[in-house]
């Protein structure tokens, strides 16, 4: 019991003493997941716009698949990426294994189903008369689609926040393809896992507090946005 209390006290000392390692880890986590969200948005938003607006055969199947992959196990994705990017793997020549970039790529893939599914729903909630309105006011088809996306922007932001949330809090991909290398790929989640097993409880608790606080603030903003 005293160990826990001691751990908590030390944790807060770490947080307030601006411990460089603590802040480096936090910064890297934010950077890696932020980059993942940017990448995922780049391909998910256009993809979801097309899926939300066009009708074609197989659309239901594609939608259903994205929905099903929302809960994809992170370790399995980590494993697949590890096999692809390891020295002897088909993509090994890029030398990306154990780099923050590969963690970002992995997280981007992980959150793509969330972004695509949520953005499609947001687009489908928009009155399609908006499209005809844009057209009759002189829009091209692309401009009309962008107008619908703008009308759906609240839902798009929500999707992006939810994606960031998932990327930021995941452990599997970061552990498997990042390797938790000191000063290079050490993230909030991987460090907590490692330091706890090594008995460095105060650092783990401090990192845990930071992780939870960021996720908490994020989710508060999500539910605030939902209400609007």
């Amino acid at each position: 019991m005293t160990a826990i209390v001691e751990g908590i006290i030390k944790a807060f000392q770490l947080i307030f003493s601006i411990d460089p390692e603590l802040y480096r880890i936090t910064g890297l986590s934010l950077y890696v997941s932020g980059l993942a969200v940017v990448m995922a948005s780049l391909w998910s938003i256009p993809m979801a716009t097309v899926l939300g607006l066009k009708n074609f055969r197989g659309k239901r199947f594609i939608r259903g698949s994205f929905n099903a992959f929302i809960g994809f196990p992170t370790v399995v994705l980590g494993l697949v990426l590890y096999l692809l990017f390891s020295r002897s793997g088909p993509l090994g020549l890029f030398g990306l294994l154990y780099t923050p970039l590969l963690i970002s790529i992995g997280q981007a893939i992980l959150i793509t189903p969330i972004l695509v599914s949520f953005i499609i729903s947001a687009i489908e909630a928009i009155d399609m008369d908006i499209r005809d309105l844009a057209r009759t006011l002189g829009s091209t088809e692309i401009q009309a689609s962008l107008s619908i996306l703008r009308e759906a922007s609240g839902g798009v932001i929500l999707a992006i926040l939810a994606g960031f949330n998932r990327a930021f809090a995941e452990l599997g991909v970061a552990m498997m393809v990042g390797g938790n290398i000191y000063n290079q790929t050490r993230m909030l989640t991987t460090t907590i896992a490692l330091e706890t097993s090594r008995g460095k409880i105060p650092l783990s608790i401090a990192l845990g507090v930071i992780l939870v606080s960021i996720v908490y603030i994020l989710n508060i903003s999500i539910s605030y946005l939902r209400k609007r």
Binding site: D127, D129, I130, D132, L133, R135, T136, L137, G138, T140, S147, R150, E151
Partner: peptide
Amino acid sequence: DQITLREKATLVFQKSVFFD
């Protein structure tokens, strides 16, 4: 060729539609 018509004409819908 709907584009030509859209450049010449504009329609006010029966039910009002607005960008939010």
